[in-house]
């Protein structure tokens, strides 16, 4: 279960919840439902399985938008598809800006919803891959010496060896050695790869 992609349904309306779960299961998804955002959050934090969330905007207690905020701020995100009985424009704009995959006013077409779910799961997959890549780069980065990190930063800015040597007050030969170690430690073969890796970890 841990590794299966799951669609979470969060709605305070039991009937809506039940019907959505049923629809998702009919489309061969694994679905799980929660009556409130808090319940979902609690559960998901313990076990952040891949998937997406169908989230009702208006709910007692923590509402959809607030949950979105919380999820955005956490390291492990999950794509959100909003569903609403209202379809009011201000909350939908807000939701989309905050990165919602889609926004459906009730009642909605199943094909549209399933399309959005597929999209969301895809995003989650990508996000998870991204997150996984970043972690590897970061690990490699952490093996660099401080001098090597300095060199890396200057290399990704596109500086030549002799300029780096001048900037760091070292010989061009030394810089060449550091540069080679960085390339080796970061497991990249070209400067372009290095730049991409550095970008992943925000350098």
């Amino acid at each position: 279960m841990k590794e299966y992609t799951t669609v979470f349904v969060v709605d305070d309306d039991a009937a809506v919840r039940k019907s959505l779960v049923r629809l998702l299961k009919s489309a061969d998804y694994i679905a799980e439902s929660f009556a409130s955002a808090d319940e979902f959050l609690e559960c998901w934090k313990k076990n952040p399985v891949p998937g997406c969330v169908l989230l009702d905007i208006q709910m007692p207690g923590l509402d959809g938008l607030q949950l979105q905020d919380k999820l955005q701020n956490s390291t492990d995100g999950i794509p959100i598809i909003f569903i609403t009985g209202h379809g009011d424009i201000p909350s939908s704009v807000k939701a989309m800006k905050a990165g919602a995959v889609d926004f459906f006013p009730k009642p909605f077409n199943d094909e549209d919803l399933l399309q959005a779910i597929r999209e969301a799961i895809h995003r989650d997959h990508q996000a998870r891959n991204d997150r996984a890549g970043r972690t590897a780069v970061a690990e490699r980065f952490s093996t660099l010496t401080p001098r090597e990190r300095e060199v890396l930063e200057l290399v990704v800015r596109g500086m030549l060896n002799k300029h780096i040597a001048a900037a760091l007050g070292a010989s061009e030969k030394t810089i060449k050695i550091h540069r080679g170690r960085v390339m080796e430690k970061m497991r990249v073969r070209s400067v372009a790869d290095l730049v991409r890796a550095a970008d992943k970890i925000g350098i």
Binding site: A15, V16, S19, R22, K25, S26, P105, P107, D110
Partner: peptide, 14 residues
């Protein structure tokens, strides 16, 4: 909308 939505989803599932 709540019940309509539930009906719709149920029907589609069926």
């Amino acid at each position: 909308n709540q019940p309509l939505s539930a009906i719709m989803s149920n029907a589609q599932a069926a």
